[in-house]
Structures are given as structure tokens and as C-alpha cells.
Design a protein around this nucleic acid. Structure first.
Lengths: 121, 121
DNA sequence: CAACAAGCTGGAGTGCACTCAAGGTCAAGT
DNA sequence: ACTTGACCTTGAGTGCACTCCAGCTTGTTG
């Protein structure tokens, strides 16, 4: 759809994912094979950028490479896998909510410990 | 203060930290040397239990073993290190808040993707 | 045209936080 | 007396997710 192309360096800059990691994700099947320029260099599309953002976000919230690979494989298998993919997202959503709750508790605990330190800066 | 003692198994059960990990934390200096029964077996105090809860919580929110060790070393050095320990907690507090924010964004993104899947089930 | 930057591949290496294994002690139960 | 189970120590092994390296090609710049 979008033909804007991004070099690996631009993609790394934009998404905060390192060059090595971008290549690693592609090798692991988390990224459809990326377009190439005539010289063989990768040219990422705008859609790639959006998907890599999603990858970054799911990774940052604890989805494993293995789970992401599975999700991608399902996507490649077509529409019949939609319910399963949806379920994966729902499950991960609940995980994220638990993480938020866990962190709220952590804040409480840290604040409690900090009261112990009320003193000079 | 509290003399209630807990066996390793009880402590693992109570804190959700495995036996191996409890020993590992002690080896790494994250735990003051634990009391021993006559037979050499560990006997954790109620205070140990509270501290292990703190460890679990700080670990779960991304503090590294190295940072925890440093925090413990400061504690062992006495009251003059209080400001630095306080600062460590303040820094970690900000980290946790960023994690919560990151996860709120992740929820938005996942929800957005889920809209794509509004369908059966 | 030389030199440098950017990227390529395949494969090896790294760091972290556990986790497991081997061989032993000790107390209690049968 | 023997077995079981909980625990001990030292040291090695594991899994994950990168991250780095060597040696190469290609395109640009002074």
C-alpha cells in the first residue's frame, strides 16, 4: 500500500529496534521477508514500520519470540486462524493488565519503604 | 525481632521464590546470611520473608541482581548510605511508572488490533 | 580511483538469571 | 537397620534474546 521506503538505519532510528535485532526478527520469521533494493539492501515499507512497532510493544510486555513466531505463522495461514490470533491477543491483554496491577503493588511497596527514608533529599 | 522460623520449603511456598533461587540470592549477597538449625538447615525469619517479598517485587519490576546487590551493600554500610539508598528507590519508582505507562500504551495498541478481529467468539 | 559508509551473510559469542546435578548429612518413620 | 525426605554444598548447565564478528559487496565522495 504505502511505498515509502526506509533504510535499515532509518528503521532502527524510528522504532528503537537495533539493526541486528531487525535482522534477527526477520530470520526468526517475525517479519515477512523485507523488500530489497537493487544492491540487496533492505527497504522497509511503512507497513513494516507499523508492524515492527507492534513487535516492539508485544516484546516489551513480555511476549516471547516463540509466541510471536506462532502468531505470525497463523497470520500466514490465512483467515481461518483469525479466532486463534484474536485469542492470543486477548490472552496477552490480560497479561498486560496483570503486569500493570503488579506494578501498582510494587509502587505501594516502594512508597512504603520510602517512608522509612523520609529525611534530607 | 520475630522468631517465627520458616523452612526453605515454607519460604518458597510463601513467596513464590524457588528453593534454588533463595539459595542463589543468598550467595549473591541479596540476603543476609540466614539462620541455621542445628543440622545446618536454613531457618528463615519473618523479617527474611518480608525482605524476600521486596526482592521479588523489585526483581519483577526489572531491578537487576547487580543493582539489588549494590542496594544491599549500602544497607550493610550503615546509615550514612541512606540518601543513596533512598535515591535508588526513587529512581526505581520512576522506572515502574514508566513501565505502567508503557503498558497502558500497549493496551491501547492491542485493543486497536483487536478491533480488527471483531468477529465470532 | 582510493577510501569510506552502509549494508549483506552465516555463524559464533554474550549476559543474565536462574536451574539442575552429584554426592553428602541428618532425623524420623517402618 | 534401612529407607525416605528435606536439606546441604559446589559447580556446571540452560534458555532466552539478542549482539557481535569476519569477510564480503556496493555506492558515494573528495
Amino acid at each position: 500500500m504505502t511505498n515509502t521506503t526506509l533504510t535499515p538505519a532509518q528503521m532502527a532510528e524510528r522504532t528503537g529496534v537495533s539493526l541486528d535485532t531487525l535482522r534477527y526478527y526477520e530470520r526468526e520469521g517475525l517479519l515477512d521477508d523485507v523488500e530489497r533494493a537493487d544492491n540487496g539492501h533492505r527497504r522497509y515499507s511503512e507497513d513494516d514500520a507499523l508492524w515492527i512497532e507492534v513487535l516492539r510493544c508485544l516484546r516489551a510486555t513480555g511476549m516471547t519470540i516463540e509466541q510471536l513466531r506462532h502468531y505470525c505463522e497463523l497470520g500466514a495461514q490465512g483467515d481461518t486462524t483469525k479466532p486463534e490470533r484474536r485469542q492470543i491477543l486477548l490472552d496477552h491483554r490480560r497479561l498486560i493488565e496483570r503486569q500493570i496491577e503488579e506494578r501498582r503493588e510494587a509502587l505501594r511497596l516502594v512508597d512504603h519503604k520510602l517512608e522509612h527514608y523520609r529525611e534530607i533529599t
